[in-house]
Write a protein that binds this DNA or RNA. Structure first.
Lengths: 192, 192
DNA sequence: TTATAATACTAATTGAATTAGTTTTGTAAG
DNA sequence: CTTACAAAACTAATTCAATTAGTATTATAA
């Protein structure tokens, strides 16, 4: 019965570490409770069950991702900023696989808080693209494309999907360059 | 005790339907057994537990995906073939969300059969790229990029990640065109 | 026919989530 | 310096899914 000095932050952070180490789907309340040195039911004093814990991980992860992206874009613009954000995105996914998973896990569009956190996470990219000339729907399409390629690469790599022992970093850099070149090529074509 | 006339194929197909309807992670042996009209333990006469069922779904999904891609590429080459395969890929992911999930679910690189099925699924793409001029590591990098963007888009969409009500198909088409233009642009540049 | 392998079943175990109800403790008001 | 209360632990008990063990049944093929 001695107090364990836990607060929401601690619980979520430890949960994130466990998710990183064992995979989000293998994170169990029993495992978390043990790590925290309390019995499983006691967890309910801090978090309202597994679903809510996962939701909190999603929010925490989205915030951390937003910070990472914003920091990467700081002081840069255009291609430079996009390259830096791509690096930062992949680095985040690699360093925090479980937390990254949480940022993608079936986001509930009816959950306003999650919805907003997701929007904020992408905002840095949107901002760069706007200062870059793209606006409105074109910007949205482009952000979607950028996200798609980043998430696709990160997710496939996380699941061990890239079989051969060809350097993944080289593949990633090339992909980013292809994307940048593609954007320039298309926008140049449409300007005529 | 009356026979239920089940065979592996049936079991896996029904499982795939349930996964499509409820999500792969929510597919339970109890649910599958009920759908099949037998008791849960009886399932063990057909499949050796949940992990193996999922593994079989992975194999089944990879084979179906390979077929879809191969069919799309049939009679086409170059950009045309890549566009058609991109369409087919997204269509598959949309029509069979649970099965698609299974094709991506933490592929065990030590499982030779899965490893091969995964390689075969991508083969059609690799083939097109080769007949397209790319070979060796360059081809591998490019395939990885193509897979990344396809999977990323499909996965984000499946999880409801594209918030706004901007036409997803338009985003997807643009992304594919950006990729194609990017490839051309870069290869043109490196030819000098 | 009858033996046997395949397939279904019931019973029982295990592990995780969750709920209910109780106890303890830190803190802050008196 | 107490005491009252809310926060945070705990134990006990329930539910549900997976899995195992052991038994019965049926279809088939010798």
């Amino acid at each position: 019965m001695p107090r364990a000095g836990l607060d929401q932050q601690t619980v979520v952070q430890i949960a994130a570490e466990l998710a990183d180490g064992h995979g989000l789907e293998n994170l169990t309340l029993a495992m978390l409770a043990q790590k925290l040195g309390i019995r499983t039911p006691s967890l309910y004093n801090h978090v309202n069950g597994l679903p809510e814990l996962r939701r909190k991980l999603t929010l925490y992860g989205l915030n951390r991702l937003r910070d990472a992206l914003a920091r990467a874009a700081m002081g840069r613009s255009g291609d430079e900023a996009l390259r830096a954000m791509a690096e930062a995105y992949l680095a985040f996914a690699r360093k925090h696989p479980g937390l990254y998973e949480a940022t993608q896990r079936s986001l509930d569009r009816r959950d306003a808080e999650v919805e907003q956190a997701a929007a904020e996470a992408i905002e840095p990219v949107l901002r760069v693209l706007e200062a870059y000339g793209l606006q409105g729907e074109a910007a949205i399409h482009t952000v979607r494309g950028f996200r798609s390629l980043l998430h696709g690469f990160a997710d496939i790599e996380r699941q061990g999907g890239f079989g051969m022992e060809v350097d993944p970093d080289a593949s990633f850099h090339l992909l980013v360059e292809i994307f940048l070149a593609g954007i320039h090529s298309l926008s140049a074509g449409s300007e005529k």
